[in-house]
Design a protein around this nucleic acid. Structure first.
Lengths: 177, 177
DNA sequence: CTAATAAGTGTAATAATATAACAATAATTA
DNA sequence: TAATTATTGTTATATTATTACACTTATTAG
């Protein structure tokens, strides 16, 4: 199982994530003879501001603000298409949002863990999940070509915060507050 | 493993699917003290025309055509929300489309097999998939609350047709056509 | 049974996400 | 350098979904 769940949900040196992502992107572009133009790099950079996915129109806003001039939808959607095609980012269907891929070079039938509290998303790749999906699909006579797996729930830090908040409440109640 | 893949992808007496779905819907509504109004029933009926999901605006079109007067988006979206809430239909995030649920009364952490050729969708529920997802999520410290699993691929009939088409082509080529 | 309340529907307007079409420019290749 | 290809700019529009408020119908309390 590969996963970036620890970095995605916990305090970490995010600069390293960003740097690694940009390095991998450049690498991938050069081997594929694709051009990581300024716009494309900016979009990728924005998506790597954090581990929270961004909607296309958020990207448009932020890019407009950063550049001083109005960036229009096709500009951003084209950059997104390019990055998607290269496997450098993913689209989250349940959120209509985009997120940087932490391991573009590994095999890709991945799934996503979306924390409903902090909004951060981790990407995982687990053989057991893929196998279960493929084998049950097979039993239904179905040939799997691609999959979208998006799990909504709570990451560890948020769960702990919630429990803390809950026990605080109980203490308050017991104290008759 | 529960699945409606045989009926979804193959020739069958679809009238029975429709009838069963409507009966289950009425049943569910009466136990939940919810009202299956004419609009809601029409929408459910439309979604059960086939095993292919329908977009909201297709439903609007068809409903308008059938009733003779313009049906507006909120009307349909309200019916969809109602049916979703009762678990009588599902929304497919990757298609922005809706489909009737073949077993609303069973436990629901299901996944969908979307045939990219014929467009039909089967719904499955497999413990192995759920277990794999929950256990790998757990290893990432993640508490699963709900999941969206949509598999794109080919159903058996479409795969067979494709192979047939392919071998026909080979025969043609060998014959120099 | 009627008044009060709640649930459902009609309608207009608009938000949010995404794409099509074509002109203009920049980069690459012949 | 000319020709070709890839990228970007721009306008317009498609697609999916929601908000807000008026109106009607059903349900419930008295």
């Amino acid at each position: 199982m590969i996963s970036n769940s620890t970095t995605a949900y916990q305090q970490h040196d995010h600069h390293r994530c960003l740097k690694a992502a940009l390095a991998q992107a450049k690498n991938r572009c050069s081997t594929r003879k694709a051009r990581l133009t300024p716009i494309r790099e900016s979009v990728l950079h924005l998506l790597w501001q954090s581990h929270r996915p961004l909607g296309a129109y958020k990207i448009i806003e932020q890019l407009s603000a950063a550049s001083g001039k109005r960036v229009l939808p096709p500009t951003v959607y084209r950059a997104l298409d390019f990055l998607l095609e290269l496997g450098l980012i993913h689209r989250l269907a349940t959120l209509n949002a985009y997120i940087g891929c932490p391991f573009p070079d590994s095999v890709h039938s991945d799934y996503f863990l979306l924390c409903r509290e902090c909004g951060s998303v981790a990407e995982c790749s687990a053989e057991s999940v893929n196998k279960a999906i493929v084998s049950t699909a097979e039993r239904a006579g179905f040939l799997v070509e691609s999959q979208t797996v998006e799990i909504l729930g709570l990451c560890t830090p948020c769960r702990e915060k919630n429990q803390q908040a809950h026990s605080d409440l109980v203490i308050q109640q017991e104290a008759g507050v």
